[in-house]
């Protein structure tokens, strides 16, 4: 993947992040039900957060 393409990915990740942290998706997971002892809402927010960070990491650090 060329540098330019990777930089375009950043814009895509930003859009994805905005989507993950906004109304429809946020509401979908807005339940207090416990998964592994953690409320689904909390689990979702932190997982989505980690996904955005992970994708950013990949687009900057992955060589070739």
């Amino acid at each position: 993947m060329s540098r330019d393409v990777r930089h375009q990915w950043l814009v895509v990740i930003f859009g994805l992040g905005c989507l993950l942290f906004s109304f429809p998706l946020l509401a979908l997971f807005n339940h207090a039900a416990l998964i592994f002892g953690v409320p689904l809402s909390v689990l979702y927010v932190f997982a989505a957060w980690l996904v955005v960070i992970g994708l950013t990491f990949l687009s900057h650090e992955r060589r070739n």
Partner: peptide
Amino acid sequence: TLIAVLWW
């Protein structure tokens, strides 16, 4: 976190 994606 979101804006950091666009920092580049």
